[in-house]
């Protein structure tokens, strides 16, 4: 996942991407998607670059990237943890689970560890309530997780 994270912005690549869409109208969202694809998130300087090159006000671009939840404005970790905060998981101790993960990684929900290994997100319901409480890491599901199992699970993702 997210191989380019934290490698800085490759200006040449950025130019190429924008060049491709430059004269199309309504190309803003596809461009932003491609940039995110390449850089893992939308670094500020890429937004400024798009604004200048495509002559779209920065305020408008900002409106778009903050509107859609698919866009990320800060770098994300190599591994994305989605911890369920839906009702079923809540009843079964989802809150304590969240606290534990936060403590182990030393970050709050929505944040990324300084080494860019993990990003911690919470979601409404992962659609696997029968396994509650549930954690999803990248594409793997973990069910009936107790706070005690957290360290072991995370360990599997550290190279």
């Amino acid at each position: 996942m997210n191989k380019n994270v934290n490698k800085g912005v490759n200006k040449e690549l950025l130019k190429e991407l924008v060049e491709k869409y430059k004269n199309e109208s309504g190309a803003l969202i596809p461009i932003l998607q491609e940039i995110q694809e390449s850089f893992g998130y939308l670094p500020e300087e890429t937004l400024i670059f798009v604004s200048d090159e495509m002559d779209i006000p920065l305020g408008r671009i900002w409106g778009v990237v903050t509107f859609y939840s698919q866009f990320y404005l800060s770098p994300r970790g190599r591994n994305i943890i989605r911890l369920c905060r839906g009702t079923a998981c809540h009843v079964r101790g989802g809150k304590r689970l969240l606290e534990k993960v936060e403590r182990v990684l030393g970050i709050k929900r929505g944040e990324t560890t300084p080494d860019f290994e993990f990003t911690l997100e919470t979601v409404r319901c992962l659609g696997t309530c029968f396994l509650a409480p549930v954690i999803m890491i990248n594409h793997d599901y973990f069910g009936r997780v107790t706070p005690g199992k957290v360290e072991n699970i995370l360990q599997q993702y550290i190279p």
């Binding site: 937004l47 604004s51 920065l58 305020g59 409106g63 509107f67």
Partner: peptide
């Protein structure tokens, strides 16, 4: 001048500037 626009959505929607910059930086 296109300084202002709406950002975020739903309850969090608010009037903002690009990158939430302070006005002198816009």
């Amino acid at each position: 001048c296109f300084v202002l626009d709406f950002a975020q959505r739903g309850f969090k929607t608010r009037m903002s500037t690009g990158l939430d910059r302070l006005l002198p930086k816009t």
